[in-house]
Design a protein around this nucleic acid. Structure first.
Lengths: 173, 173
DNA sequence: CTAATTATCTTAGCGACTAAGATATATATC
DNA sequence: GATATATATCTTAGTCGCTAAGATAATTAG
């Protein structure tokens, strides 16, 4: 019995530890946004722009799940704060490309340095084989959460009557 | 060279996979809140209440980082929706204990079933020893993110001048 | 009893969001 | 080429949840 923790208890601890670090990760992101003086959505867009380089306003709406109207506000704020520029697409003048100004990338990037350093430190404690296991788990976990999100939609659509009917189910906007 | 992926590439993939699953996890939580017809903050409080059982309004403000005024609104909405009840503390009548009504626990709980099932499925693919490694990593990771959050505050306090000075640093509220 | 403290609620105002529709440009059909 | 439809973004009006400040009520200290 002393050989190995009971699996159920192990899973419980694992779940809690993951929940905690995930929540703390969200807090970190919010802290970065606060320091940068922008909203969480603004930072999310800025991060995406840094990855993709040059993206239309409409694409930002897609990936963030915001309306195009909200994105107009996001870009207005980011542009006013000097983080991004609007550039009309010359071949299709309806489109507006958003680009990050290089100095902004550096300025925001510095706020992620502490996180990168902390993660490097953590990773340094693992062998390559162990890291491969972690990667497998991270990929499995992502797939799992995706599945769960899909399954959740099923729960919604199924017994539409019994759903959130503790009181009024709040009319869908 | 074919023996084992280069460590740097491995770490890159690991980082991305973790970032993705974390982001998807946030989306899942938001989806649950949407279905339940409450805000993200409301759900956060409800989850905490389910863990702790019976908690004062002030404690909710502490753990969520919201003001007491905001908590009044949260509890108002949750109570109106029938998820919680207010109960004055008889021995100190300034305090208000919030309790979850049992049916609400069940009602919200069902939205987490898909996630629990997906995670069980994932975990079933790992040996107990592998799970122990994952737990070690989750704990290390949590510590790392906490450290990073601390270190980030240092970045803030240090060269107060150069911070977010791309334009105006936006006055602290 | 009075003053200070504690716990919650109220009020005013703000920022970010959605829904709907306006505007400008592009594409398809005749 | 003219007309209709589609696409991409912006504008407007209204909503929601938040904070800051202070009001209210109950408790504790002097």
């Amino acid at each position: 019995m002393s050989r190995g923790k009971a699996r159920a208890a192990l899973l419980g601890e694992l779940e809690e530890a993951m929940r905690r670090s995930s929540a703390q990760g969200v807090l970190y992101g919010q802290a970065v946004a606060d320091i940068a003086g922008i909203s969480g959505s603004d930072l999310e867009c800025l991060d995406f722009l840094n990855l993709e380089g040059r993206v239309t306003a409409g694409r930002l709406a897609e990936v963030t799940g915001l309306t195009t109207g909200a994105i107009t506000g996001v870009v207005d704020r980011l542009e006013k704060a000097g983080y991004v520029r609007r550039e009309r697409d010359e071949s299709d003048r309806r489109k507006v490309f958003i680009t990050v100004v290089p100095e902004a990338t550096a300025k925001i990037g510095q706020f992620y340095v502490p996180m990168q350093q902390a993660m490097q430190k953590v990773w340094s404690g693992y062998s390559e084989e162990e890291l491969r296991l972690l990667l497998r788990f991270a990929l499995d976990g992502y797939k799992g959460v995706l599945e769960a999100t899909e399954a959740l939609k099923t729960v919604i659509d199924a017994p539409a009557e019994k759903r959130a009917s503790l009181k009024t189910p709040k009319p869908r906007r």
